[in-house]
């Protein structure tokens, strides 16, 4: 019973917080802080600079462009941390696959 009350309290407090500050100004700044912190720590812990990721992004574009036409503006490359390991996460929207691949290996 008390569990349900606690949950209800949490929801109400969340709503109150949303109405007071965060709602129309965008996300609560605490969440933003958490996400920025997570990201910067991924770079700190792996000794990689955001600039290095930019270079990787450019190289990925070169390689993939040999096989398919991609949406460069919609492309996202980031590092993400999964418990103990680090992953490179790339999301690359494809516009069109080329009929004739002109990749490096061909």
């Amino acid at each position: 019973m008390s569990g349900a009350r606690e949950r209800l309290g949490k929801v109400l407090r969340g709503l109150a917080g949303w109405a007071r500050g965060a709602g129309w100004r965008g996300r609560p700044s605490g969440l933003l802080a958490r996400e920025r912190l997570r990201l910067v720590l991924v770079h700190d812990r792996t000794s990689t600079s955001p600039g290095l990721l930019e270079m990787l992004r450019e190289d990925l574009i070169d390689v993939i462009s040999g096989y398919m036409e991609i949406d460069r503006d919609g492309m996202e490359v980031s590092l993400s941390r999964a418990s103990d390991s680090v992953m490179v996460v790339a999301s690359i929207p494809v516009i069109r696959v080329k009929r004739q691949a002109s990749g490096v290996g061909c």
Binding site: A16, G30, L31, R34
Partner: peptide, 15 residues
Amino acid sequence: VRRGDMMDIDDIIDI
């Protein structure tokens, strides 16, 4: 913290 403008203790510990 309650109104979401300060990082949560649990989040900091987790990170």
